[in-house]
Write a protein that binds this DNA or RNA. Structure first.
Lengths: 350, 350
DNA sequence: CTGAAAGCGCTTACAG
DNA sequence: CTGAAAGCGCTTACAG
């Protein structure tokens, strides 16, 4: 493999690699002549290996999006918040736009997002598409969808399926993390969450799924609601819980619906003298904070923010190219991975 | 708009349509020179309108899949079953493959799908990808994923997110149908379903979501499990229910998790002398049967089978082009539409 | 399926 | 950003 990635790859290279005539490659790629499947496969494999197919695909996808309009509920904007997830997601989004040469215009409107304002802003910016982040107000979504512009909801749910959405596979990821704890002997797991957007409730669904899948009594998995998703909310909720039950009430693990909560949980639990993970294991959800931010380092579910940004732009272009056709709206969920660190690195004897 | 779709459209046409120089169009499409957003947008819009972008995209996507290997659990094969959904889905799939010039090789193995057999078959067929339909056995999925071949699960769930999946948005669609009934005054709705694959349980989730969303007591929405998804299973289950309760126990609507069940429900309810929809409304799920197959015609949720087939092939190609990279697996759900016919065409006075 | 050759469409460099 | 021009890469028709 001494191919230089800088030299441009053409069908001549593919024909040499596959050991067939130049014209044969062309015919395979365009379906303009009947070619035996054996040769056809050889050609396609060579084209794929040399990156020719990828190059060709990129050329087809390029440049259809010149400007996107980005609307984020002000409460989730990075500057007035310690929300690292928001910040990382928006960074990934703008980096991906830059890579594609797509201009991003951010919405700056009233604190409450408003369809008319967003549409006016998008029009003024000459945007072909709108990316809405987090907000899942059905009225807003429906109004935007009715405008005929291409709209994608990122990191939110639209139960009415009026617009395309891109989000992490929250339910399945939470289920996997819970299963992982169960497989290490934990039985009484506390799910620490808050009454946030519906995507957060999907993590609760997944938590319960894991118990159901193993035919374990559902009440082994208790749910504790904090007042919000900041570390202090976690501390307050846990403090009250520990006070009420005179301890952890037999729980051996806390599965938090956000890293922010997990950070607060670590602090609060340690303040009460619990050893982590020996007395109680802690698992987070998000995976944007560096591992050594906490002591012990946090085991967590990593949400693929970069891939979410890529998929969002792809979905937007896809929708744009389908303008006019009534292709159904789609919901895309991306898989998350468990990052095993110290805060849950302990197997219970069963 | 007198453009002839048969004449090939080139950038010359785009430049004329947009009123700019030929070279400008090229620069816009390739990002090879800085172009003002105003001109850029004019060019892209013209390119989109003339179908040039679509043509270019198609060229990029074409021909990367030569052969797919199709594995369907034998129980779901059309020939030994009255399962119209299966039949329609597989037809849509093979039609889409034909359109793309992709060869389909069907798996013919033991009644129980087996990873080694499937992989051997796919290899023998020189297939680049595998489409698995329905089956959601986690062991099977994991084994296939580990093989390194591109794998898509169609109409199933993979909670482990080992392989990419494409499915209808079952949960949201069931929620919408239930909301629609609730909005027409129904309060006690019976959800008639069966213990099928997990995708069917998502319809139950959606049924419950609709009650929760309106803050209605969850026990207003009762669930009745039939022994299977055939019309006779529905009849048996309903017969027993009516007998036990000496009637419909206050229910004014039956929301069935499959059209097959709805067909049985219509027959059974009418046999007991109930008027449909005046005494009880019936809603199905699938939408593959013609509307006049039943009396009265069936209101149902239409699953976009053609679009599912298109998305499946797209997802497979996408995965193929990402070979090597560790892009997370994705789950794609497509929106469904409620088809309003006579069997639920009745609004209750509230 | 090959290989040489003609031709087409797009890209690119450049003066205005 | 235009417009004429050179050039490149791919397509296509055809004899073998």
């Amino acid at each position: 493999m001494d191919r230089r990635t800088d030299r441009k790859i053409g069908i001549k290279d593919v024909s040499r690699e596959a050991g067939v005539a130049l014209s044969t490659v062309s015919h395979v790629l365009n379906g303009t002549a009947p070619i035996s499947t054996e040769v056809r496969n050889r050609v396609l494999e060579a084209a794929r290996r040399l990156g020719y197919l990828a190059k060709r695909q990129q050329k087809g996808a390029i440049a259809s999006l010149s400007t996107v309009y980005l609307a984020v509920p002000p409460g989730n904007l990075p500057h007035n918040d310690i929300n690292l997830v928001s910040w990382t997601l928006l960074t990934a989004l703008s980096r991906e736009c830059e890579r594609r040469g797509t201009k991003v215009v951010a919405h700056a409107g009233a604190p409450e997002l408003n369809a008319a304002e967003i549409l006016a802003g998008a029009q003024a910016a000459n945007a072909e598409g709108i990316i809405l982040v987090y907000d899942d107000n059905p009225k807003l979504l429906r109004a935007l969808a009715a405008s005929g512009l291409a709209v994608i909801l990122l990191n939110g749910e639209d139960p009415t399926m009026s617009v395309d959405t891109v989000a992490p596979a929250n339910r399945f990821a939470a289920r996997l993390a819970t299963q992982w704890l169960l497989s290490r002997g934990h039985r009484r797991i506390l799910h620490l969450t808050w009454r946030g957007r519906s995507t957060i409730m999907r993590r609760l669904d997944g938590f319960r799924d894991a118990y159901a899948e193993q035919n374990l009594p559902a009440d082994l998995g208790r749910v504790l609601f904090a007042e919000g998703y900041e570390p202090d909310h976690a501390r307050t909720a846990l403090k009250r819980f520990i006070h009420q039950h005179g301890g952890l009430d037999g729980h051996t693990a806390v599965f938090c619906a956000a890293d922010n909560l997990a950070i607060g949980a670590l602090a609060e639990l340690q303040e009460h003298g619990f050893q982590i993970p020996a007395d109680i294991a802690v698992v987070g959800f998000d995976g944007v904070a560096p591992g050594d931010l906490t002591v012990p380092s946090l085991t967590t579910v990593r949400v693929p923010l970069d891939a979410l940004a890529v998929s969002t732009l792809q979905a937007l272009e896809q929708r744009l190219s389908l303008t006019g056709l009534d292709h159904p709206t789609c919901r895309i969920e991306l898989g998350c991975r468990l990052i095993e660190r110290d805060s849950a690195n302990f197997t219970l004897r069963t």
